[in-house]
Amino acid sequence: MKIEEKILLNEIRKKNKDVFNFLFEQYYPALVKFSEIYLHHLPECEDVVQSFFISFWTGAENININTSIKSYFYTSIKNLCLNRIRDLKVQDKYEILYIESLVNTNNIEMILDSDIFDSINAALEALPQQMSEIFCQKYFEGKHLKEIAKELNVSEGTVKTQLHRARTKLREKLRETTNLNFIL
């Protein structure tokens, strides 16, 4: 986990409402959309994401994040959704729901520039070969995620400015609400 994300999590542990509100605003709509593939019902999706944020706030002391906050959020929502549809006796053996939803609700640049990339890539590689090829054809013009990443990394596209903007906003928020200026 990056240092600024550690600070972020720490701020949540210290009950910093501004940081919580910031994360909520940043991720709430995306996570609701992400959960659609599992639940297919907007109120249910909103409920899952809201419950998640509540437990994130109240149980922050016991949370251990190894990757990034973003991928922690997505993985948690995934698991919570799968729990909700347990009674239907379905399983997502190849994580096909997970990758379909991520690819459908995020733009490719955002995926490529985060830890989400690793998890999607791992899931794609675990797919039976034929499925993986169809998937890539459908979404990535037949290319594999790694090739696209390589191509995009070379060109300094909008990705970086977009991410930079998000990070600057985050830093400002932290600066307003903490005394951690020197770290950031």
Binding site: K17, E25, Y28, V32, K33, E36, I37, E46, V49, T58
Partner: peptide, 21 residues
Amino acid sequence: PKIKTSDINVAKAKRKVSFLI
């Protein structure tokens, strides 16, 4: 997907969650 960003009322959700926590 069918859910659009405009279907999601973030402010309302935030109020609800803030109230609870």
